[in-house]
Amino acid sequence: MAKVAVDVMLKPEILDPQGQAIVRALPGLGFDQVTAVRQGKHFEVELDAADAAEAHAQAEKIAATLLANPVIEDFSVRLLD
């Protein structure tokens, strides 16, 4: 059993109005040094894989097929344990 984290972020050139809304809310809470926030998605995928390499490869495929849309998003994959 392997656990893999997949992080999906909008590409830098894609407008993220949710992140902008968070930036605008922070000064009102006393956080006045924040210049930018980008919001993304974090997935934790558990797999019955033979080894870590296979788990990583499977998660890469899952991310590229479904979890991320390559038109607007980038993703990264890392083994958790």
């Binding site: 909008l10 894609i14 407008l15 109005p17 949710q18 809304a21 849309n69 038109v71 607007i72």
Partner: peptide, 11 residues
């Protein structure tokens, strides 16, 4: 079709 639809600019 090419491209994608994302969250409205004004939220």
């Amino acid at each position: 079709l090419p491209g994608a639809l994302i969250r409205n600019a004004g939220l």
